[in-house]
Simulated scan of single mutants.
Amino acid sequence: MAVLLGIETSTDACSVAISVDGRVEEDHRIVPRQHNALVLECIDGLVRRLDIQLADLDALAFGRGPGSFTGLRIAAGVVQGLALARGLRVISVSTLQTIAASAARLRPQAGGYVCVLRARQGELYVGAYAAADGAGGPVESQPDVRVREEDFQLPDAAGPDWVLVGASDVLSGLPGCTRVGLEDAVDAYPHAGALLEMALPRWMEGEGVSAEYALPVYLQTQLPWRKTHD
């Protein structure tokens, strides 16, 4: 029996999921600034629902960012503690890739996903992920970046069948692409269930690090993606 725990707290969503032999149960809540108080409660509830124990865990996965500084530290701290106590490997997954995988549940016909999160005032985290068949999830087309809002550009890879994913207030005024609309904004948050669907095959292929290397990723402000034909 393969049992994996996934935690995503990089955004306003506190999302926890457990996979037991490929069956995923998730607790996903939009609770700004309440992650620290709720994440262990979410884990305990899933353990009880699935009638397992933390001792049954085989591996852990978490959203490594980019995202909220505090939220990233919460997820990393929980998985580090569990991994250290039990000698488990940890799989880290880009929060923007998890957003793409979550959006793929809504728009499976899309060719790819340009995922946008608000960073500090006037700045954005942006990731570009092409749709892919199979369990690996959307594939990175260009590295995640942090840019000034006025420097935002669609990546070269983004075609007419790509969607722009994020909360409506963030997407407002950004150019191009079909938008994930207001009715989909909540579901565009990163889901821990989607994170686990990507982490499981990576773990089965031998990926993962020990507790001390399970660290968040913080992006520095960069120049926008450049068009190759400029």
Rank of each mutant, 00 (worst) to 15 (best):
A103Y: 02
D44R: 13
G77K: 04
G208T: 11
L84F: 15
R48H: 06
L171T: 05
L200Q: 12
E25M: 13
L38R: 13
A192V: 02
D184R: 05
T228W: 12
C42F: 11
A61D: 13
V165W: 07
E150H: 12
Q34Y: 05
D144Q: 00
L195C: 03
G206I: 08
R202K: 14
L171N: 02
V116H: 02
Q34G: 06
G137W: 00
S141C: 14
Y218K: 04
A37V: 10
G137Y: 01
L106R: 14
T221P: 05
S15N: 06
L195I: 10
A59S: 12
L174H: 02
G45S: 08
S19T: 08
L154D: 01
A185K: 10
G122F: 03
V31C: 05
S210N: 04
Y189C: 12
V78T: 11
M198S: 00
G127K: 03
G206W: 09
D21A: 14
R86A: 13
A101I: 05
L84I: 01
A131H: 09
Q80L: 08
D21Y: 04
S168Y: 04
G111S: 12
W225L: 15
L154Y: 04
P224E: 08
Y125N: 08
I99R: 12
L124M: 02
G206E: 11
C177W: 00
E25H: 12
L223Y: 09
L57C: 05
R29A: 14
V31L: 15
P32R: 07
R49W: 00
P155R: 01
S168D: 13
V186N: 09
L54A: 02
L200C: 10
V78W: 03
L219N: 09
P32L: 00
A17L: 13
L154N: 10
E123R: 08
Q53S: 15
Q53A: 15
D187H: 11
A103G: 04
E205M: 15
F69C: 05
V31T: 14
A158V: 11
R49D: 10
V170G: 00
A55I: 03
A199H: 01
T9A: 08
G181I: 03
H229T: 13
V209I: 13
W225V: 14
G63R: 03
H229K: 14
R118N: 06
G71L: 11
G77V: 05
G193N: 03
A199R: 03
A75V: 08
L154K: 04
P66L: 04
A157T: 02
R86I: 07
A192I: 09
D230Y: 06
T228L: 11
A104R: 14
Y218G: 10
L200F: 03
I7Y: 05
V145Y: 05
P143S: 12
P32H: 08
A214N: 03
V116C: 06
F69R: 01
L196Q: 12
C42E: 13
V165H: 10
Q53W: 10
C177E: 09
P160T: 09
A194K: 06
D51G: 09
T98E: 00
A37M: 14
L106F: 08
L5D: 08
A158P: 06
